Amino acid sequence: MSIDVRLLLIEDNHADADLTQEALDGGRIAIQLRHALDGVEALDLLRRSGEDAYRPDLILLDLNLPRMDGHQFLTQLRLDPQLKPIPVVVLTSSEAPKDVARSYQLGANCYVAKPMDLSAFQSIVKAVESFWFGIVRLPPSQHA
């Protein structure tokens, strides 16, 4: 049985975005991945309406982004009643306790530090996929 889910990746590093896509490809879960380079682009995508509307089941968010960083994005997301229910996994290179604490204070559902090792990174992405799309009960889908 194939599960179809939508995932928004907010990541300015193209190599990390490609590695994330690669790790998600070929699994039992059919993931429609959209990619935004920063919080401004992501909010623009999320706030569209009509045929252009995009509501992911989960957001993977880097913190260190241009224009609008991950913490600013989380603040804006959680202030919007339509977007507030979307779960957010912070997937970032920062292991700073202040970044972890602030992310949770702003409404992140999970905080994962990106490992530097390629196979460890792919394992982390697979574990996030397995947990969020295999174990967790997500809010009802807002897409057709």
Results as ranks from 00 to 15, higher is better:
Ser2Lys: 08
Ile3Gln: 15
Leu7Cys: 08
Leu8His: 03
Ile10Lys: 04
Ile10Tyr: 05
Asp12His: 11
Asn13Gln: 13
His14Ala: 15
His14Gln: 15
His14Gly: 00
Leu19Ile: 04
Thr20Glu: 06
Gln21Pro: 00
Leu24Trp: 05
Leu24Val: 02
Asp25Pro: 00
Asp25His: 14
Asp25Asn: 14
Gly26Ile: 03
Arg28Trp: 12
Ile29Ser: 04
Ile31Gln: 07
Gln32Trp: 06
Leu33Gly: 10
Leu33Met: 15
Ala36Gly: 06
Ala36Gln: 01
Ala36Trp: 01
Ala36Ser: 11
Leu37Lys: 13
Asp38Cys: 13
Val40Ser: 13
Glu41Val: 03
Glu41Thr: 06
Ala42Glu: 08
Asp44Leu: 11
Arg47Cys: 08
Arg48Ala: 10
Arg48Asp: 02
Ser49Glu: 15
Ser49Asn: 13
Ala53Met: 12
Tyr54Thr: 09
Arg55Leu: 07
Arg55Asn: 11
Pro56Ser: 03
Leu60Phe: 08
Leu61Pro: 02
Leu61Asp: 01
Asp62Phe: 13
Leu63Tyr: 02
Leu63Trp: 01
Leu65Lys: 02
Pro66Val: 08
Pro66His: 10
His71Val: 06
His71Cys: 08
Phe73Arg: 04
Thr75Lys: 13
Gln76Asp: 13
Gln76Tyr: 02
Arg78Trp: 00
Leu83Ile: 04
Ile86Tyr: 00
Val88Glu: 00
Val88Lys: 03
Val89Ser: 01
Val90Ile: 10
Leu91Ser: 01
Ser94Pro: 07
Pro97Ala: 14
Pro97Gln: 14
Pro97Ile: 13
Lys98Glu: 12
Asp99Gly: 00
Asp99Phe: 10
Ala101Thr: 12
Arg102His: 13
Ala108Trp: 03
Tyr111Arg: 02
Ala113Gly: 12
Ala113Thr: 15
Pro115His: 02
Ser119Tyr: 10
Ala120Asn: 06
Phe121Ser: 01
Phe121Tyr: 14
Gln122Ala: 11
Ser123Trp: 05
Ile124Lys: 02
